[in-house]
Amino acid sequence: MKLGLQLGYWGQGPIPNAAELVGAAEEAGFDSVFTAESWGSDAYTPLAWWGSQTSRVRLGTAVAQMSARTPTALAMAALTIDHLSGGRHIIGLGVSGPQVVEGWYGQPFAKPLARTREYVQVIRDVLAREGAVRNDGPHYPLPLAEGPGVSGLGKPLKPITHPLRADIPIWLGAEGPKNVAQTAEIADGWLAVFYTPRISPMFNGWLDEGFARPDARRTRETFEIAANAQCVITDDVAAALDRYRPSAALYVGGMGAKEKNFHADLYRRMGYGDVVDEVTRLFLSGKKAEAVAAVPDEMVRETMLVGTKDQVREQIKEWEASGVTTLMVTARDTDTIRELATLV
């Protein structure tokens, strides 16, 4: 089991002690550090800024949203930071949801699986630099040959800069069965959000479907599973659950439309369908405090590692036994980072 530090995306402003956290993670032997984006701070700028002070940890995005950049633009950012870090970059991608894709980026959300497959292939073609990049797919055509305002003068190109690595690992954020199976087929790793060992047989079934496909890129033995988890070492479990209960309510009730919320769908598969319905109803009617209160302890706790040192050590063993190769923790103080490093 490896440890990764998930810095996430910013709220109203930058994470005040992020540089200190990154330094502590590298010193404590963490394998990786990740940044994210929603519709505020971006993923690549903080990763480069804070990552410039490191020399060993891998630097990843978890996740960079596909609709924020064309696949060639993402490949440019990736090959750049991979050079600057000496080959330590991990490309972490996700489709986000229709509210963000269409509401913030102004892009159509349809066919997320097909878009992901095409997006990943274009990135791999850029990084391979075996010739001018062409793509005949409907989502990211290269060169663009027709459409309103198209000059018809576009030409296939290959990157001026030679990538340091043609095989920069690509990890995909995925929550549903089809998306997870495709991730196992075309990617180098899976970024799992709201993971719980309790339903790992379901997750592993989805992954095995992807590994069994004829053109699967990797096997289970060479594939990485990075599970995101809040991690709190404490004697006061109740207080820790109360601290993270609002986040659970937000993701199942407010992060996505009522008609399509991938986080809510995942919690339904975990057996919390009635809770999801109630939290969503309360959240969308403006009763946020009541929505938070409707989230039961067990729904918060099972996607966390929380308790005393000994309890957290045993929980880490459970997550590892379920197939997780990297525990991506969201610790926000250096003491927790150092303590966690002693438990793995």
Rank of each mutant, 00 (worst) to 15 (best):
W39K: 09
A110V: 14
N179V: 08
A73S: 10
R129H: 14
A341W: 00
K260G: 12
G253T: 00
I337Q: 03
D125A: 07
R124H: 03
M202V: 13
R56S: 13
T334S: 06
Q230H: 13
T334G: 04
A289K: 08
D310F: 00
Y44H: 06
P214L: 03
F223K: 04
W206C: 05
E318D: 12
A321E: 09
A166G: 12
I123K: 06
T54V: 02
P214I: 02
N135S: 07
R115T: 03
P143A: 08
L207E: 04
A114W: 06
A166W: 09
V100T: 12
S85F: 02
F30S: 07
K260I: 13
M76Y: 09
E290S: 07
R220N: 03
L84K: 03
S52N: 05
A181W: 00
T219D: 05
P108W: 01
R88S: 04
R269K: 08
E224P: 11
V193E: 15
V275H: 07
E175V: 15
P156K: 10
T183R: 13
L84Y: 02
A341H: 00
G271C: 07
P16K: 10
F211E: 15
E278K: 11
A48E: 02
L21N: 07
A68M: 15
P169Y: 11
G210E: 04
L7F: 01
I81P: 13
M255H: 12
F223L: 05
R117L: 15
